[in-house]
Design a protein around this nucleic acid. Sequence first.
DNA 1: ATTCATACTGAACAAATGTCCAGCTACGGG
DNA 2: CCCGTAGCTGGACATTTGTTCAGTATGAAT
Lengths: 209, 209
Amino acid sequence: MNELTERQQQILGFIQENQDSAGLTPTLREIAAHFRFNSPNAALAHVQALMAKGFLRNRPGRARSLQVVAPNAPKNRPRPRVVSVPIYGSIPAGRPEDAAQEEEGCVLIDVTTLGIQPTARTFGLKVRGDSMIGKSIVDGDIAIIEHGAPPRPGDVVAALIDGQVTLKTFLRQRGKPYLRAENPRYPNLIPQEELLIQGVMVALIRQRQ
Amino acid sequence: MNELTERQQQILGFIQENQDSAGLTPTLREIAAHFRFNSPNAALAHVQALMAKGFLRNRPGRARSLQVVAPNAPKNRPRPRVVSVPIYGSIPAGRPEDAAQEEEGCVLIDVTTLGIQPTARTFGLKVRGDSMIGKSIVDGDIAIIEHGAPPRPGDVVAALIDGQVTLKTFLRQRGKPYLRAENPRYPNLIPQEELLIQGVMVALIRQRQ
DNA sequence: ATTCATACTGAACAAATGTCCAGCTACGGG
DNA sequence: CCCGTAGCTGGACATTTGTTCAGTATGAAT
C-alpha cells in the first residue's frame, strides 16, 4: 500500500469529515477553498494521486462523486448493498416501526452478509438476559431479525410473548410449534394461542463492551 | 406530519437507497431517468413537495445536495461512516493485507458500531474451532479485529502462533503476557518469545448458517 | 362547468463542476 | 548539474446540474 503524503492525508480527511458531518461530498473547488488553493487543479492533482493509490474513487465528469475507499478493499469490487438496521432495546408490542419504541441506534450491514433480500424489513434486537446462552447468544448482543420471514425448525426467532419480544429457538413437536430457551434454567414455551413470530434471526453482532 | 403521495414515497425511497448503497445522492436528471420521466422538472416538482413536507432538504443551486431528513430521526444526526472489512479465513503469517491470503468476502459496518477510528486497519477473521466457546465465540463466527491496537488484559486478541492467527484472551501474570483459551480442553499459552498480537477483537458477527 | 391538486412534458438558460493544458518553485537523489 | 516528484498557479473549456417558464392531462371536489 502506497504511503500518503501529508497533504494527501489532509485532503482525504477533509473529504471524509465532510461526508460524515454534512453528508455532502465536497467539490474540487470546495477542497481548494478549504486549503486556500487558488486553483481547483491543485485539488484535482491530489485527488488523482489518492485515486491512483486506491484511497478514492469517483465517477468521471460527475459532480460530487468522490468516494473514500478503504485501502484494503479489493479493487473494483461491486459495492455491496447496505441496509440501515435500527436497533431496539425491546419491542413491547406491535410493529418494529412504532415510533414509541425504544430505539438504540442503528447498524449498517451489507445484505450479502445477512443473506437477505435488500427489501426485507430488518431490525436489530438488543439481547437481554442469558436465556439463549446455549446458542452462544449473550446479554448485550444484537440479533438481526428479518421481519416476516417464515421460521424453520431450529431457527432462532423473535417471538412476542407476554407483550415482550424475546429470542427463542423455534421447533415443532407433533406438528405443533413451540419455543425453546437455550438455557436449562428457563422453561420451554408451548403457546396456547397462535404464536406471534416477529421474524427470524439472520445474524448476530457483538460489540466490544 | 403531512402524508406523502405514492409517487413521493417512491422518490424518497429512491434517494435513500442510492445514498445507502452507492453513497451518491442522485441528481434530478438521474431521478427522472429512473422513473422514466422525460423531464428533470417532474423530479424537481416532487422533490420540492418533499422539501415542503420536511422530508428532504438541499443546498439550492448545488449539485447532489439532496439530504433525506427523517421526520422521526434526531436532528443533525451524523451519518455513520461505513468501513469495508475484509474477512480472512486465516492469516498464516505477516500482514493482513498480504494479497496471497485466503479472503472470504467482506462486511460493511459503520465505525460507530465497532467503536473504532475510521482510519483503523480492520479485518475480519473467520473463527475456526471451539477454543473460545467460553466467551460464546463459536466456529464460523467472524471476529472483527482492529489491527495494531494495544491489548488490555481481558481483551480477545488475534495472536500469531505457530504461523497461524488464532483468537485468545490476552492476560498478564506477574507482568508477563500470556494467552488463555476459553475452553478447558485447550491449554493456556505462555509464549517463550515476544507475543505477536495482530489486533484486538472489537466486534463479532454471526451469520445464519 | 369550474377549480384545484397531482403529475407530468418540453425547452431553455445560468451556474456549478470536472477536466485539461501550460507553467512555476522547491527539494532530494543520482 | 540534471532529473523526478511534490505541490502548487492560471486560465479555459465541456459537461453536468439546478432552475425557470409555459404548458397539458387527469381526477376529485364544488
